[in-house]
Design a binder for these strands. Structure first.
Lengths: 338, 338
DNA sequence: GTGAAAGCGCTAACAA
DNA sequence: TTGTTAGCGCTTTCAC
């Protein structure tokens, strides 16, 4: 079927060594020989066997990307950036969806199932900081979002506390006073929601307001559906919010949807701010104000971390904690109330 | 660093053969031996070397998924299904984004760059039917969407002509007569847009209407931005459509956005129908009517095709053309005009 | 400039 | 039940 180096060598009347040199472009080969080998290569349609190369090299050229789910816009956009950035570095990305299953996350982190990838980028969901402190892994890991206090992994994330504070302050600045938060996830070990809640409360206190538990609406997952349910609950409970800070854009879009259905005018009666900067928000009616993390930089920096660890495994650089820039993109959904 | 079978064998005082048996669970091993080996395995934290296994097995356990882009919702949802379905079959998915680059598509199809995957699922964008008729490939390929008349690859797709016809007929049934089409891509070899245009025209003719070129608005890509531009063009040109059939949901959402901005009431003055069944549409204001392909089945059937070809390469089953069910999900954006 | 051959880590055919 | 060993296809050291 597919031909090996040996076949090509036989056809060209040279040794495998020479063919290998021609294929890789390394070593020195006489012009005449090269041409003959190339002809044989073409004739047989030679394709290198990647597994053999990998075995030899001790590397696979593969990196893993483990995310909760690929279908939600934020992770889709992020994965796209990572795959793209990896391609530029001649790495191929294998994708795992954990669906927030703690066992799946553990399995990936501890490398059970074999050493397939040269490095792993993981966006943990179910595992808390303590569990991320792994020990028995042999490939470099980069954590997206979650902190890992005593671990060995680099971390790349935006400053969630600060960003949430800014989003909330923006609402306060436009005169909103009953600002609801949609997105706390007390049932998870996950840090992200916790940090955004902290930032939200900080902003309120900074404005002399007391955080009101009735305005903090917990969710199980972060999809539009959850946002819609949370918004419905807030409206039905008579909490009368004049603004909503949703911890993700999807939640915000769900909330926006319910507001629209209920005839609540956005932004006049209710301002809405999301988080993630997904493309949908831009085209929502009204367009969604949101905290935009620089996803390109998340991808870029995460890969840079992996590259450094993979290519200089000796260097004992301590775990990096890389903070990615973000900005608040103000759009129609939080325009001045008046 | 990481230990090999040989190290484990030495520690347990057995041969590699026995360790291999324990690891794989195959062969028969005395209970007492097994326990001893397992202890050694645990102590050393043994992780199988996948590259070595692959070389030995002649398979990598990897399948490729090549799509134009991962960040758009349709491909994100589709990729999610495929990764999920692959995980269930113990395959790992490596993702390539072609960004509609014909060379990237060619490279993946002809296997230049080495034999990394056991099979390839590709959603072509730039290459037309004739170019997809490849010859020199050695792994099975499944095409999503595009037909490949004389090729060797299986194909999985919805009936685009029929689906587009149904969508258009639905608009006709509610009394719309000036139905615009947003989405033709005359600059591409890609078949999908062509088929949807055909279905659209068929429906019009079936209703005794003459397709009007002025109502067919071409686009370069299929994003919200393109839909917005197309809608703007239609409105500015004074074509006065009373409905829009957009070839993708993203285009439809862009159109919806512009309609909203311009104060065109949907669905009263303008009905909108999309194609793809992405989640955003459900939460748009108003919710988007759309043709929903069964993405789970696309993934399932595509993987089934690969599995059949990979595990029974001998069988000379002719290329399959698998038609996936779809349905029209009617929502607010195309409610009765009355 | 080129050939011969070792060896990457694993599985399985062959032996015992 | 278990040990020995060949060999998957490649790269590269060593020798010429």
């Amino acid at each position: 079927m597919s031909s090996r180096l040996k076949d090509v060598a036989a056809l060209a009347g040279v040794s495998t060594r020479t063919v290998s040199n021609v294929v890789s472009g390394s070593g020195s080969v006489a012009e005449e020989t090269r041409a003959r080998v190339q002809a044989a290569l073409d004739e047989l349609g030679y394709r290198p066997n990647v597994a053999a190369r990998n075995l030899r090299a001790g590397r696979t050229g593969l990196i893993g990307l483990a995310i909760p789910e690929l279908y939600s816009p934020y992770f889709g956009e992020l994965a796209s950036q990572i795959v793209h950035a990896a391609q530029e570095r001649s790495w191929t990305v294998v994708i795992d969806q954990t669906f927030g299953d703690p066992d799946a996350e553990r399995r990936l982190l501890d490398g059970t199932g074999g050493r397939l990838v040269d490095g792993l980028i993981i966006s943990p969901w179910a595992l808390g900081p303590e569990e991320l402190t792994n020990t028995s892994r042999d490939v470099p890991v980069v954590l997206l979002g979650e902190r890992q206090p005593h671990g060995l992994a680099d971390r790349v994330a935006v400053d969630n506390v600060l960003a949430a504070e800014e989003a909330t302050s923006h609402l306060l600045a436009s005169g909103r006073r009953r600002i609801a938060a949609i997105g706390p996830q007390p049932h998870l070990r996950n840090e992200t929601a916790r940090q955004r809640l902290e930032g939200y409360r900080n902003a309120l206190r900074g404005a002399g307001l007391q955080p009101d538990r009735a305005l903090e609406q917990a969710v199980t997952t972060l999809h539009r559906k959850d946002g819609a349910e949370a918004m419905t609950a807030l409206l039905d409970a008579g909490t009368r919010p004049d603004a909503v800070f949703a911890f993700t854009d999807e939640l915000a879009l769900g909330a926006l949807h319910v507001a629209h259905q209920r005839g609540v005018s956005v932004p006049r009666e209710l301002a809405v701010v999301g988080f993630d900067g997904i493309e949908d928000g831009q085209y929502a009616n009204p367009p969604l104000t949101t905290v935009v993390p620089d996803k390109r930089q998340i991808a870029e920096r995460a890969l840079q971390c992996l590259a450094d660890r993979i290519y200089s495994p000796a260097s004992a650089v301590p775990p990096l904690d890389i903070v990615i820039p973000h900005h608040l993109e103000v759009r129609g959904s939080s325009a001045q109330a008046d």
